[in-house]
Simulated scan of single mutants.
Amino acid sequence: MHPTGRLFAIVAFIEAITWAGLLAGMWLKYGPQANVALVKLFGPLHGVAFMVYVAVTLFAALRLRWPWWATGLALLAAIPPLVTLPLEWWFKRRGLLSVRAGQ
């Protein structure tokens, strides 16, 4: 795996973890305990992780020469919860996280 592909995989994982933390926080906030502590923690963390994910996605798309559809899918994957992980796994299987022949 190319170092840029590894960076993308790490950031995709962090983005998904912060999404999970934010979802757990929202469940606690609106659920039985009405506790906002996790939302206060994971809200800003997820905001930063989302912005870093978008930046790293654009960097990886340029550096690894992704086709337009891969770049679009990677950007869209950050919107629904936890989709960056399966997308990263699929990209790895397709070879999109490695340097392609002719580069």
Rank of each mutant, 00 (worst) to 15 (best):
M1T: 07
M1Q: 08
T4S: 09
L7M: 09
L7S: 02
I10H: 13
I10A: 15
I10P: 05
V11Q: 14
V11E: 11
L22F: 13
A24Q: 11
G25E: 01
M26I: 10
W27P: 00
L28F: 11
K29Y: 02
Y30H: 14
Y30V: 00
G31S: 06
P32G: 15
Q33K: 11
A34E: 15
A34G: 15
N35C: 04
N35K: 11
V36Q: 08
V36Y: 08
V36I: 13
L38M: 15
L38W: 10
L38E: 06
F42E: 00
P44Y: 09
P44V: 13
P44N: 11
H46V: 01
V48H: 02
A49D: 06
F50H: 05
F50G: 05
M51W: 06
M51S: 04
M51I: 04
M51Q: 02
V52L: 15
V54L: 14
V56K: 03
V56D: 03
T57H: 01
L58S: 05
L62I: 09
L62K: 13
W66M: 03
W66L: 04
W68S: 12
A70G: 07
T71H: 06
L73K: 07
L75Y: 08
L75V: 13
A77W: 06
A77M: 12
A77E: 12
I79R: 08
I79Y: 14
I79H: 09
P81F: 14
T84H: 07
L87N: 07
E88Y: 08
W89G: 10
W90M: 06
F91W: 12
R93E: 10
R94M: 03
R94S: 01
G95L: 04
G95A: 06
S98K: 04
Q103P: 05
